[in-house]
Simulated assay, not measured.
Amino acid sequence: MTHRFPIKEVARQSGLSTATVDRVINNRANVSPQTKARVAAAISELEGQEAQLAARGRRLFFDFVIEAPTRFSREVQQAAEQVLPSIGSAVCRPRFQAQEIMTEDDVTAALSRIAKRGSHGICIKARDLPAIRAAVDQLIASGIPVVTLVTDLKTPKRLAYVGLDNQSAGRTAAYLIAKSIGNGGGAVLTSKSNDRFLGEEEREVAFKETLARLCPKLRIIDASGGSGVHGETSRIMQSVIAGLDEVRAVYSMGGGNTAILHALDQNWSLPDIYVAHDLDNQNRRLIEDGRLSFVLHHDLRVDLLNVFQAFLHHHKLMVMPLQTTMSHIQVVTPENIPPFNKRFQKRTSSNTH
């Protein structure tokens, strides 16, 4: 594996030992494909960040631990890479660990490994579970700041929550459905990726309260638990779709929309209105094809810039704290889909050194 970085630097970026990195780079035996992929990803990240090294300032390592479908974690990493050139007060080096499904033990083990090797900040998207909250509090007590992304944790010690205003998103989804289908009877299908993602829970509560007020005759059928992954979502849908009568609308809070649509299509239950979240590649194709009615979108590049700036302010590399870390909702329809490669607008540097 060709590269131009010291093994120690690749090891630090990948979170592996120098001995393991040495075995991968020299193509020695008994190395798993996953380990090879981690080393290759670390080298790619170092190459992508190398241009920053010419800038003056401290070099800070930030870790991302993300439980999400690959399509979303990839979007997060791309957003981080896009905003890094706009940060001039320090050299920020992100390190990513992402899995589609992470158990409580998976997350706590990842946080423990990061704590051992050291970090200037951890950005986490994980379920709100007791052991994860305890691990986060322990990290913070050790001096490592923690920012939650898109979905929050019930710990007052975290540095900030960054992402969508989830309650507003739930109310918006209910309003769009109510205005589109009126107050007749029928069912609205809702789907969360997992009950313990606090952000999705906030969306659901606000959605149900608003829909009950605007359209009291509609009833809600839940099809949650698929983790936003195609296979699991299909399995959940098959368990609730049999015998289901008219589905007038769908509110998908956690992804897996291809699987949901396929199951509804098989049951001849395609809805009049379908509201989803996030304009990732899959949802972009679906809304372009008219399969989704509305996508509640927020710019992940703004979120990631807020993540980095929250950390920089913590390390006293920004003069003023962020006024808000909440993202504005953009209601995307088939008629106003943003350009795929819309250029990120660099924020003004008035609040940085």
Rank of each mutant, 00 (worst) to 15 (best):
3 H>Q: 14
17 S>W: 05
32 S>M: 01
33 P>N: 02
35 T>L: 04
42 A>D: 02
45 E>R: 09
46 L>V: 03
56 R>S: 15
63 D>C: 06
67 E>Y: 03
74 R>T: 15
79 A>D: 11
80 A>E: 07
92 C>L: 15
94 P>K: 00
105 D>S: 12
112 S>N: 14
115 A>K: 13
116 K>D: 13
124 I>H: 07
128 D>H: 02
133 R>K: 14
139 L>C: 06
148 T>M: 12
148 T>W: 11
154 K>T: 13
160 A>R: 15
161 Y>M: 05
164 L>H: 00
166 N>D: 14
168 S>A: 14
168 S>C: 09
176 L>A: 07
179 K>P: 02
184 G>V: 06
189 L>W: 03
195 D>S: 12
197 F>P: 02
211 L>A: 04
211 L>Y: 08
212 A>M: 08
213 R>L: 13
213 R>S: 13
234 S>F: 10
248 R>T: 01
254 G>A: 04
265 D>W: 03
267 N>Y: 04
273 I>Q: 11
273 I>D: 02
277 H>V: 14
278 D>E: 15
283 N>E: 01
286 L>Q: 09
288 E>Q: 13
290 G>C: 09
292 L>D: 08
302 V>S: 10
305 L>M: 14
314 H>K: 11
322 L>I: 00
324 T>V: 05
324 T>H: 04
333 T>A: 09
336 N>P: 10
338 P>E: 08
339 P>N: 09
341 N>S: 11
348 T>N: 13
349 S>Y: 07
352 T>G: 07
